[in-house]
Structures are given as structure tokens and as C-alpha cells.
């Protein structure tokens, strides 16, 4: 079991109950959509997995470890095992595509040799080998998101979390990103993608977990977006 949430609850200081007694199990190599209206608890769930926040109750087990019990200084190593991409790409504007991806390896103190070998591999995986020396503002939105995908997987994480990765993209470029995500999943990485994109969820025919008002309302192995 890759990710397991057991009876997880989270109430924020303002009294808002973001998650109520959530139970989720995600296996190795699965591709899971996390759907639901804004404010339903998707972002809270992702923050819990990255240990940006801690739950009030319950256990969150990732790669066999209860992350709620991790010490502060162990958090970076948890995050190295989880790649993450966001709706707004979060690329560094003064670094080239290549440098943006290499940066993720530099902060883990990888050797320059490994960096020179690994970065071209992931750039070709997302189809951006030819744009390695361009800057983010010279790329389309879809291309920028694929750079951030490359950055997320360059350290070889076992899990990839995508928080509305197509939220800022038009349908065509969204599909470019989905193709890359699918490719990454086929290579064995577990993918968890929070999204509003109904047509993508319906077309991909993957497992769908729906959250509404802090509880899981549906968990279909080959489901569509639903209502």
C-alpha cells in the first residue's frame, strides 16, 4: 500500500471542518482522480500528504511510514519521495527549463554527474528536449506545466501529486499534460490528481475519489466525474 489514510479528520482554527473521518487506500502504481467542488477538502488532503499541516485525528501512512509522527527535520525526505505540481506551475523565471529541472536535484545535493544524466531523460519524457535552453516566459502554459512535471519527477519519487494541473490551461494543452502524466504513471509512479476537469476525468477512465463537504461521497475504480 502506497498511501493510506485512516480515520483522518482536520478542523481549522476558524472552526471549519475540512475533513471528517476520511479513509482512503491507494496502491502502488495507481492513477487516482480526486474530484469535488472548491472548498470540499481536496487541497487540505494534499497539504496533509505533504505534511504542510497535521491532522487532528487519524493516521496518514505513506510508503509504510506514519507521516503524522515524522519529525520536522524528516519532512524534506518525505517530500523527496513525493513529486508535486501546482495549477500555477511555480517555475523560477530567471532559470532556463534545464536549470529549473536541475534545481530540484541540486537542492537534494545530487552529484553534477547524476544531474547531467537525469535531467535530459525527464525532459525527453515530457517532450521538451528541444526547449531545454528557453526560459519559462518563452513557453506556452502547457509546456510550462510539463517542465514542472519534469521537475517533480526528476528525483524519482514514488508518488506524484498534481493539484489542478490543468486548471490554467486550455483543453488542447491540457491533453498534452495528461499524456505526460499518463506516461509517468505507466513507468510505475503512483499519481494522485485533484481536478475540476470533468471531460478529462470522464475520458481517462481511472479511479475517482469524490470529496464533498469533507467526506468521501464516492470511490469508483473506473468511474467518471459524476454529477
Amino acid at each position: 500500500m502506497m498511501i493510506e489514510l485512516v480515520n483522518v479528520s482536520k478542523t481549522f482554527n476558524n472552526g471549519h471542518k475540512a475533513l471528517k473521518n476520511i479513509n482512503i487506500k491507494i496502491d502502488n502504481g495507481e492513477f487516482v482522480f480526486l474530484v469535488g467542488p472548491s472548498g470540499a477538502g481536496k487541497s487540505t488532503l494534499i497539504k496533509l500528504l505533504l505534511k504542510e499541516i497535521d491532522p487532528d485525528d487519524g493516521k496518514i501512512i505513506i510508503n509504510g511510514k506514519d507521516v503524522t509522527k515524522l519529525k520536522r527535520r524528516e519532512i524534506p525526505y518525505l517530500r523527496r519521495s513525493i513529486g508535486v505540481v501546482f495549477q500555477d506551475f511555480r517555475l523560477l523565471p530567471d532559470k532556463t527549463v534545464y536549470e529549473n529541472v536541475a534545481f530540484a536535484m541540486e537542492v537534494t545535493e545530487a552529484s553534477p554527474k547524476d544531474i547531467r544524466r537525469q535531467v535530459p531523460i525527464v525532459l525527453s519524457l515530457v517532450g521538451l528536449s528541444k526547449k531545454a535552453n528557453l526560459y519559462p516566459n518563452q513557453l506556452s502554459g502547457g509546456e510550462q506545466q510539463r517542465v514542472s512535471l519534469a521537475r517533480a519527477i526528476v528525483n524519482g519519487p514514488s508518488i506524484l501529486i498534481a493539484d489542478e494541473p490543468t486548471g490554467n490551461l486550455d483543453p488542447d494543452t491540457s491533453w498534452e499534460v495528461m499524456k505526460s502524466l499518463n506516461e509517468i504513471n505507466h513507468r510505475g509512479t503512483t499519481v494522485l490528481m485533484a481536478t475540476h476537469a470533468k471531460d478529462i476525468v470522464n475520458a481517462m477512465k481511472k479511479r475517482v475519489i469524490a470529496i464533498e463537504d469533507g467526506t468521501i461521497t464516492r470511490d469508483d475504480m473506473k468511474g467518471g466525474y459524476g454529477i
Binding site: 520536522r72 517530500r79 511555480r90 523560477l92 537542492v107 545535493e109 521537475r151
Partner: peptide, 16 residues
């Protein structure tokens, strides 16, 4: 701060 935020997500240690 942007760069710092990104570094946190890609698993940079505090001292790094």
C-alpha cells in the same frame, strides 16, 4: 520567497 517556497516542496532541508 518564490524560490524558497519551491525549495520546500522539492524537499530541500532547512539548512540548505
Amino acid at each position: 520567497r518564490r524560490e524558497i517556497g519551491i525549495m520546500k516542496y522539492i524537499g530541500a532541508t532547512d539548512w540548505f
